[in-house]
Design a protein around this nucleic acid. Structure first.
Lengths: 186, 186
DNA sequence: GTCTATAAATGGATAGAC
DNA sequence: GTCTATCCATTTATAGAC
């Protein structure tokens, strides 16, 4: 892996713990073992790193969506896989989702960064919308109203639960997702 | 209103925009029109201000809960009032909920602060649990499973939607709450 | 690409006068 | 309670050598 990617990935990990304003080039420097100036060589301004990081996250979301979509699974099982992927992100509730972290800091990031952040959430809502539509068509899962509206609810709930679990412990996320799934059962 | 309260209330407003690490005594100084040193006179350390602010928020939650509980309204209408109160907090989606802001920054606040933050969310879940139980008993609203589990879901969804609405616009919160209510209809 | 050194600004916090 | 002045640490960022 090249250094740029290493820095980006480390930054995402740090974002799960601290906010965008709360981490410094010094944090990265210590963790990677090169000087602050070297980090600046790869990403001149913190904002450049922020944008690179969001584009990296968007790429990840795109490829995960594609991978999930191509799996030989039922809509229900794909939805479960989606939740499990996100459970891994927060590592038992000890960490936050980087999307939450950046949303909470939307006023301290650039407009460009915020645009990509919106794209990422839209991609997720797109995926869940498709899974909900397919599942309802097949009679495998149940919900009222439009698929897209319910997908927005599903993503909001998941994201909210990811953040709440930071203070309520790792069980909170698991339990809330269970309740969400209970509501989707026919 | 005394100065301490003025500072606390202003800090909560700033927290809706920036994170706990991202605002400074200088921000408060500028807005109120007294020097940084004067802010320090009222709250020696930033951590003291943080704790005072959380205790203030907890008091507010307690009195709002009590007020809501005493209203001559049906459980459904009380739930709606609860959502409307929270819609006011984020002011059309331009701002975040301070609870979200602090949860996202849980690693940069003190353990004492985090404890009170947990109390606040627990109080909300308690309220919603009671409303859900009463509503189901009266046959006015519907949900599967335990009232407390569903209350955790309701609060997670609301909080998640509050934060998403920062990038998805003011309509997102309203729409997601509508979808949440649609699911609660008998 | 990486380093040391350093600039320039801002942060939290204190001392002491009024 | 409020002020000015100041301290010290940290932060983002740059210059220039290797």
């Amino acid at each position: 892996m090249d250094r740029k990617t290493e820095i980006v990935q480390l930054t995402i990990e740090i974002l799960k713990v601290k906010g965008f304003d709360s981490f410094s080039y010094n944090d990265l420097s210590q963790e990677i073992g090169i000087s602050k100036a070297s980090i600046h060589h790869h990403f001149k301004r913190k904002e450049d790193l922020g944008l690179a990081l969001l584009l990296f996250m968007k790429e990840g979301t795109l490829s995960r969506n594609e991978h999930l979509f191509d799996l030989e699974l039922s809509p229900w099982d794909k939805l479960e896989a989606f939740f499990n992927m996100n459970a891994q992100v927060i590592e038992n509730g000890t960490k936050n989702c980087p999307v939450n972290s950046l949303q909470a800091n939307v006023n301290v990031i650039s407009a460009e960064m915020a645009d990509v952040l919106k794209d990422i959430v839209d991609l997720e809502i797109d995926l869940v919308t498709t899974l909900l539509e397919d599942g309802r068509k097949e009679g495998q899962l149940f919900f009222k109203g439009k698929a897209r509206d319910h997908a927005a609810l599903v993503v909001s709930t998941m994201r909210g639960a990811m953040q709440q679990s930071r203070i309520h412990g790792h069980g909170f996320f698991r339990q809330t997702i269970e309740q969400l799934k209970t509501n989707l059962k026919v």
